[in-house]
Nucleic acid binder design. Sequence first.
DNA 1: AATCCGTGTTCAACCAATGAACACAGAAAC
DNA 2: GTTTCTGTGTTCATTGGTTGAACACGGATT
Lengths: 109, 109
Amino acid sequence: MFTDNERYQLLRALEQNPNLSQRQLAIELGYSLGKLNYCLRAFKEKGWVKAENFRNSQNKSAYFYQLTPAGVTEKARVTRRFLQRKLEEYEQIEQEIEALKQEVAQQQL
Amino acid sequence: MFTDNERYQLLRALEQNPNLSQRQLAIELGYSLGKLNYCLRAFKEKGWVKAENFRNSQNKSAYFYQLTPAGVTEKARVTRRFLQRKLEEYEQIEQEIEALKQEVAQQQL
DNA sequence: AATCCGTGTTCAACCAATGAACACAGAAAC
DNA sequence: GTTTCTGTGTTCATTGGTTGAACACGGATT
């Protein structure tokens, strides 16, 4: 349904900035508006996010997308998993670079 | 039209194994058959690859996808560019990992 | 001859992603 | 008060890349 990347990015963005509009969030994450809306709904249904009404003089009528306790837990879990994946990716890229360097060196003979 | 990744992967695969069938190539690169066929045609049109007939007792009727001199040149260029990109990616992941580690550490307080 | 098998090629179907368009509501202007 | 404006969340027809089943071909095999 979602990639770890999407889970992590969105949960993190919501934790840091619960008061962004969907459009701002979409821009921040590089998503389209439709996709972000879709993800957000799914997160609500999973119980990770609760949308509360939020009004002030600045923002007309908007929501406050707050992580629920379950959302915080999930975010912690997905962060650890994401780190693990990045570490593997890091090693893989390291090897790739080594191979590429040799390839480039051979080309220049 | 193509990503550096696709250019590099396909040119490299062809250089190493010019005698693979499109299906084998597709599996090797993780592409669908249609996509590989599409890429290959585009590479032919760009003059990077020349398809020659190739027959023996093993393979019934197949082609031999050989890199042209222009293809070899392009492959060298794209390899260098790809290496450069990978180096940047490497640094970026390094930073990401550092940030993730701090994030995980904070969670466990 | 007839069948089989591995080719390259095609293309309708699929599906995630897009973003224009909509309905709504508070702010601002008149 | 009424109207206009602006920013919001939501919807959904359209797009565009991807897929892989189906096809035509031809040499091997029976």
